[in-house]
Amino acid sequence: MVGKITVITGPMYSGKTTELLSFVEIYNIGRKKTIVFKPSIDNRYGEDIVSTHTGFKVSAIRISKSREILDYIRDSIDAVFVDEIQFFDLELVDVVKELVFKGIDVYCAGLDISYLENPFETTAKLLAMADEVIKKKAVCEKCGEHRATYSYKIIPNGGEIDVGGKEKYIALCRKCLSEIKKQEVIL
């Protein structure tokens, strides 16, 4: 028996974590054994929980390196859930492979591209090997349409990896991002 890999991706505020947690709930209703992981870098809503921007949350284990996931896996685990995969090292890909060949379903959620429009390598590799990809969209902060696929950083400081929420990022559609970039060139 082998497991399956599901990757949920899209920009900030698109409901990636909400979708991930809905799968956790489905497995729990089915009395399946689950375990949830998050990167130690992300402590926005607490150290031992994964939470949506709207406050729905579940208990989670914070880890620094992907390989640590294997320390928590027991024979009885049916599904593993990993949030914010863009913050994990590339070894997450090998860990996920190992889990699915043990018969464990793995659900991953995370950004596909940075605010600089660079693909996150860990996410890209997991997308390539996923059995199912769920690509989410957000409501564009500028035009209000549900077609945003970009996370735009409104605070120019910090690096490409810069954990934050509404105080740093907004979701934009391609058209509105293009308009903002044109304005930036003019300034």
Rank of each mutant, 00 (worst) to 15 (best):
R44E: 05
D75F: 06
D42K: 06
V58M: 06
H53I: 05
Q86E: 13
R44F: 07
Y45N: 03
R67L: 10
R67E: 15
F37T: 11
T34P: 09
G55P: 04
F56I: 13
I85T: 14
S76P: 00
S51Y: 00
D83W: 03
D78G: 06
S66E: 08
D48A: 10
D48Y: 13
I63W: 02
I35R: 01
S40N: 12
T52W: 03
I41D: 10
T34N: 10
I49T: 11
I61H: 02
T34W: 08
D48F: 12
F56G: 00
L70E: 14
A79N: 01
R67T: 13
I35P: 00
T54G: 00
V36C: 11
K57Y: 10
D42I: 06
T54S: 12
R62C: 08
R74D: 14
R74Q: 14
I35N: 01
K57M: 13
I49F: 03
P39A: 08
S76A: 11
V82S: 08
K38G: 02
Y45D: 03
V80K: 04
E84F: 04
S64M: 09
S76M: 04
I77M: 02
L70G: 13
V36L: 14
Q86L: 11
E84G: 11
I77D: 07
G55S: 07
